[in-house]
């Protein structure tokens, strides 16, 4: 499972079984589990589940968007439009109208990818691939690259250096090297904290759900009620519903704030 990554996190902790692990471990489907294709799918579980989510959501949205009409909008169209308008309002309010519109596709995609992935952890036979550090690190690195490129384009390389030195004037140049080191460490710490926050939250939820599911099954087995396990993990599902949504919002808002921090200041007066 580790695939050379130095994070042996899988199969050590209690987690809710998904359909790949069920097929892998049950005796009835031993033949399927031996095929190379299935073993490949198992090795890339997180990618499989996130791509499955992406395909399902894209199919739904593409199908819905083919039927858009101005005269007779459907319910789905109204819902999708209000969602997009809400996100447009948020980014425009934060980054200014033009810049907000420019970054809306990136930030919106980030939010929906993370949110749907978090929700996948609560769909039966599915798995939240954000509980795998490679996924969250990749997302955080996307934000990092976008922020750096935006900074270099909007501020020019020299202006960005000036920004990293704390925008010194006059006597403040003495402290510039200190600020430069501080800001460089800060820039590296941003994607690290973004990815670790999301990863820790979702992994914690998964372990919580898996542990209490195990408790429920163990208790029902102890009182000879094997066919009707007690859903002890149900209250924690509401908790992870809430926390998963909040983490998606937080990732979205922090990416927006990091982009805003490297924009030139005079643009804030425009709105």
């Amino acid at each position: 499972m580790a695939l050379g990554l130095p994070l042996p996190l899988m199969s050590e902790h209690p987690e809710i079984p998904n359909f790949l692990t069920i097929i892998e471990e049950s005796k009835a489907t031993h033949g399927i589990a031996q095929t190379p294709l299935f073993q490949l799918l198992c090795a890339y579980q997180n990618e499989v589940f996130s791509l499955l989510m992406v395909v399902l959501v894209s199919l739904f949205v593409i199908r819905a968007s083919r039927r858009f009409s101005v005269e007779r909008p459907t319910k789905v169209q109204n819902a999708l439009e209000s969602i997009v308008e809400g996100f447009d309002g948020m980014t425009s309010g934060f980054l200014g109208r033009e810049t907000g519109r420019f970054f809306l596709p990136f930030l919106g995609t980030l939010f929906f990818f993370i949110w749907f992935n978090n929700m996948m952890g609560m769909v039966p036979f599915m798995k939240a691939s954000t509980s795998w550090y490679a996924t969250t690190l990749g997302l955080a690195l996307c934000t990092f690259v976008v922020v750096q490129i935006t900074a270099v384009i909007k501020l020019n390389p020299l202006g960005y250096l000036h920004h990293l030195m704390g925008e010194p004037r006059g006597g403040m140049w003495v402290l510039a090297p200190l600020f430069l080191v501080l800001h460089l460490i800060g820039e590296v710490a941003k994607p690290l904290s973004l990815s670790l926050r999301l990863f820790g939250n979702i992994l914690g939820e998964d372990i919580l759900l898996g542990t209490f599911l195990g408790f429920g099954v163990a208790i029902s087995a102890a009182i000879h009620m094997d066919l009707l396990p007690i859903p002890l993990h149900l209250p924690f599902m509401f908790l992870s519903l809430l926390a998963g949504s909040i983490q998606a919002v937080v990732f979205f808002m922090l990416s927006m704030i990091y982009i805003q921090l490297v924009l030139p200041h005079h643009e804030e007066e425009g709105h």
Partner: peptide
């Protein structure tokens, strides 16, 4: 508040990640 809470809560999450590792 939500952004600030995320920063505060992240400290516990770092400890949790250390615990996992």
């Amino acid at each position: 508040m939500i952004v600030g809470a995320a920063f505060i809560e992240a400290l516990t999450i770092y400890a949790f990640v250390v615990f996992i590792l």
